[in-house]
Simulated scan of single mutants.
Amino acid sequence: MARRKSTTTIDPRAALLAPLAGFRHRAMPVGDTGAQVIVREPGADDWLTWQQHLQAAAGEDVTEENAEEVAERVTASKDHTPEAALLVRVLLDPDTHDRIFSDDDVPEVNRLWGPVYGRYLNAAFELAGLNTATPVEDAAKN
């Protein structure tokens, strides 16, 4: 006789109210430490914060017309403040789902910017559907 499959009923309300239910996210390792972080896709307020820091670093409003030139200038300046401002908002503790960094940590993250931070930020862009080398232009299209 065939065994009856057990069905697990998932409460849709509880699933929708889970801390990260509204965001795509993924767990990522922290180097070789064995620790993990959760990277979540940026929300609207995260994009606004990034935009504010990008405009401050550029010294002007960023528009579709000047986005490429501004991106080149900010990249050449090696100022990672806009990236750091977005990154501190999307890295979460896997146990508590709280942010690991506060907005006050932006200067320190900028000062210590390295490839691992870039990988986390690229993951956030991918989760947001911006997985090309031109996230500013892609965001304008969405």
Rank of each mutant, 00 (worst) to 15 (best):
A56M: 10
R119P: 01
L92M: 14
A35L: 11
L127D: 13
V37S: 03
A128F: 06
G34T: 00
W50E: 08
R111P: 05
W113V: 04
Y117W: 04
A133Q: 11
V62P: 13
A56K: 05
A85C: 07
L86Y: 02
V70W: 03
T49S: 11
Q55W: 00
E65W: 05
A133I: 10
L48G: 06
A57F: 00
P94Y: 01
A85E: 03
A57H: 00
A123T: 15
T63M: 10
R40A: 03
G43H: 05
E69C: 04
L86M: 15
D45W: 04
D104Y: 07
R89F: 02
L86S: 04
A124C: 13
D105C: 11
N122M: 13
A123S: 13
E68T: 14
E69R: 15
A133V: 11
T96N: 06
A35T: 03
R111D: 14
T134V: 11
D103N: 12
Q55C: 09
N66L: 12
V109E: 01
H80E: 06
Y117N: 02
L121Q: 13
D95T: 07
L87E: 03
E68Q: 11
P107Y: 11
E41W: 05
N131F: 11
V106A: 07
A35Q: 12
A71S: 14
P82Q: 12
L48K: 06
D104V: 04
P94A: 06
D46V: 08
V106Y: 04
Q55V: 08
D103P: 04
L92S: 02
D98G: 04
W113K: 02
V106W: 05
E68K: 09
Q52E: 07
P94F: 02
I100C: 01
A128N: 14
P107D: 08
V109I: 15
V116W: 09
I38W: 00
E108L: 15
F101M: 07
H97T: 15
I38E: 01
A35P: 01
L121A: 07
G43K: 06
T63E: 06
D46E: 05
T75L: 14
V39A: 03
R73T: 15
A76C: 02
V62F: 03
A85W: 01
V37C: 09
D98V: 03
T96H: 08
R73D: 12
P82W: 06
L112P: 00
N66I: 13
P94M: 08
V37W: 05
E60V: 05
V70E: 04
N131T: 10
G43E: 11
L86K: 04
G59D: 10
V37K: 01
G118A: 11
N131S: 15
A58T: 10
R119K: 14
E72M: 12
V109G: 02
A133F: 04
D79K: 09
A35F: 07
V116Y: 11
L87R: 01
I38A: 02
W50M: 07
Q51N: 08
